[in-house]
Amino acid sequence: MKNRICPSIEVLSGYLAGSLAGDEKIAMERHLTGCPRCRQLLVETYEIMSSRGIHKRCKKWLDLAVKNRWFMGAQAALILSFFFPAYFVQFLTACFLMGCKWIIDAKTTKMLIMIHEAWKRGEKTELDKELSGFKHFMF
């Protein structure tokens, strides 16, 4: 029968990390074939550690969603206004307000406003000249 004394978690985690070699590794593998308990612990550990990648990716998307929440809210309100014609005006107002919030929050807009104000004061910068076409369109 197989060796029934389970190895310590230090050795087991070493196996998972690929730190074992030679006889120690072979002994470990032999034990794992005969011991469902250690095998389960190994598999569970692997599962938790590999789910971290997914975790991080989810977080990235979540961050993106939070960052653009007003824009997405505005879009959602716009779409909903078509599905619920009875509340069309309310949804459209919500869409407009959230859209405004999005525009105010956006960094690029802030920069453009600053340039616009500078331009009004008559301080024409190089950047300003380059952006004049775009500014014309915006304001």
Binding site: S8, L16, G18, S19, T45
Partner: peptide, 19 residues
């Protein structure tokens, strides 16, 4: 102090937590 090396630390922590 019992952890073998830095590479196995995370696995060790998970195993300790599970147990």
């Amino acid at each position: 102090a019992r952890v073998r090396d830095a590479a196995s630390l995370e696995g060790w922590l998970v195993m300790v937590s599970l147990n």
